[in-house]
Design a protein around this nucleic acid. Structure first.
Length: 474
RNA sequence: GGAGCCAUCGCCAAGUUGGUAAGGCCGUAGAUUGCAAAUCUGCUAUUCACCAGUUCGAGUCUGGUUGGCUCCUCCA
């Protein structure tokens, strides 16, 4: 028998560890908060992966006609940023603005749609201060002699419910930050008072200092989302490494401050390894997006980075990247065949199949297989009937649908294959192709093959199609 | 030490409530083409790390073994 006509979105919740039907806290609206970067350095592949994962989520929700609000924060106050300020002599704003700008630019190059709200920690200090005061009044937070403010984890009966990590043994306690004044070993800092030498700190009713990392997100969520009596937002997203302690602590603060849970769903993306090794600066294999973009077009990187399910670990290597590029090439070759024309409506069955796949916790593999099928079928039909206008219009509409949902196939197809070739070279190639075609008409195959060799020596591949001779950069 | 994840064709990778292994790359045979490329068609895992169990039936459930990995400390 048929399975349920269950096209409704299901997402995997890291807290309950299972796929759950997505039911937004406010009908037809979806609120997503993504833990964004700490802006002390350039964005690396891991940032891209996270960004891309939740970009797909947002696009899928939009395609399902949800009114989506995405917030992604920038942590612009933090020890590492302060260190950079001291090292470079630049101001905090100079440094953070620089990295925020380049982060956004690079993510846009990867086709990531900007978040609707992009709060900065330094712009949310009032919300943080009132959150802390709220907790101090309830005696859930406490100030120690240095001025630091800690969260009393023993006051939250549900502490541990997010990550299921209950670290009680002594082995663990020894690894946690030491402070004799802490009530419990697990207590974490909500606010760090500034040392005597430190210049970057903010005045509050409890002490002069700066916010703890976990606090920022809680405060920003409360500030920017209305929520309901049960939850502040629908989905809280971030990297798998943030589940503990970051999200655990966020959830605890918010729960105690507001009396309800922070987020209905929690989702986490997997990590990026480079050639089988964990990507890290100490291993020297860290990979900045800006460097990758010098070699590969953003869409090619996007196509590769989204091709593996967001919860799996991603093993980045050039061979796989080139393989995945072949899939994109096929999509664009098809687009070439139907250009120019005006798109009509996408094929309903195709559209539904893709939406069904993406609704199943963003099953990109099934979506890609569906695309392959569409490409193959369309090419087949085009072979049979190269001038079928209705088919061309529908095919183009299919591709435009993919562009909106997955961010793939949006370029003008001829330029896609000519990325990085300058006008002068283009003219040379066109002239050579013309010369070759003349030779072919005269059946001077020796000459035409010689010209083809000359063209391929330039790194260009040519194809004689029903629609004429076309060329691609290899 | 504690918490958890993963292991499917040469490579990448799907596989919700168990029912008899998607798709891509590569390879190969053919159609088409002056040739090549592109495009299309066919073929390519009796089998899912290993062992045992539950079941009429298991890649999918249970127990164990082996081998990778992550978190518990800043981290997407």
């Amino acid at each position: 028998m048929k399975k349920n006509n269950n096209n409704a979105l299901h997402i995997y919740d890291s807290v309950q560890k299972q796929k759950l039907p997505f039911e937004s806290i406010i009908p037809r609206k979806a609120s997503i908060y993504i833990c964004g970067p700490t802006v002390y350095d350039d964005a690396h592949l891991g940032h891209a992966r996270s960004s891309l994962s939740f970009d797909l989520l947002a696009r899928t929700l939009k395609a399902l006609r949800y009114e989506v609000t995405v917030a992604k924060n920038f942590t612009d106050i933090d020890d590492k940023i302060i260190k950079k300020v001291q090292e470079t002599g630049q101001s905090l704003e100079e440094i953070t603005n620089h990295y925020i700008t380049s982060y956004k630019k690079e993510m846009n190059a990867l086709g990531v749609i900007d978040a609707d709200i992009e709060p900065k920690a330094t712009q949310s200090l009032e919300a943080m201060e009132s959150l802390i005061n709220n907790l101090i009044e309830k005696d859930i937070a406490y100030v120690v002699s240095s001025g630091d403010v800690y969260f009393d984890t023993s006051k939250d009966a549900n502490y541990g419910s997010i990550s299921h990590q209950v670290a009680d043994d002594e082995e663990n306690q020894s690894r946690v930050e030491h402070n004799a004044e802490k009530r419990n070993p697990k207590d974490f800092a909500l606010w760090k008072a500034c040392g005597s030498e430190q210049e970057i700190c903010f005045e509050t009713s409890f002490s002069k200092g700066r916010p703890g990392w976990h606090l920022e997100c809680s405060a920003m969520i409360e500030k920017h989302f209305e929520g309901t009596d049960e939850y502040s937002i629908d989905i809280h997203a971030g990297g798998a490494d943030l589940l503990f302690p970051h999200h655990e602590n966020e959830a605890a603060q918010s729960r105690c401050a507001t009396g309800h849970e922070l987020s209905k769903y929690w989702i986490h993306n997997g990590f990026v390894n480079i050639n089988g090794e964990k990507m890290s600066k100490s291993l020297g294999n860290s990979f900045f997006i800006k460097d990758a973009l010098k070699v590969y077009d953003g869409e090619i990187l996007r196509n590769y980075l989204i091709s593996i399910h967001y919860r799996n670990d991603f093993n980045f290597n050039e061979e796989d990247l080139l393989n995945s590029k072949k899939r994109l090439d096929k999509l664009y070759r098809l687009k070439k065949r139907v250009t120019p024309t005006k798109a009509s409506k996408p094929n309903i069955k195709f559209q539904q199949a893709i939406m069904r796949a993406m609704s199943d916790d963003l099953n990109i593999s099934v979506a890609l297989a569906t695309i392959e099928e569409m490409i193959s079928t369309s090419n087949d039909k085009l072979d049979e009937n190269p001038k079928d206008k209705g088919l061309k219009k529908e095919t183009l509409a299919n591709i435009e649908f993919l562009d909106a949902l997955l961010g793939l196939g949006g370029k003008e197809p001829f330029s896609y294959f000519q990325i990085g070739i300058d006008e002068k070279t283009k003219n040379t190639i066109e002239a050579l192709i013309e010369a070759r075609n003349s030779a072919k008409i005269e059946k001077d195959y020796e000459k035409s093959d010689a010209i083809r060799d000359e063209i391929s020596a330039m790194g260009i591949e040519i194809m004689d199609t029903a629609e004429g001779t076309v060329w691609e950069k290899v």
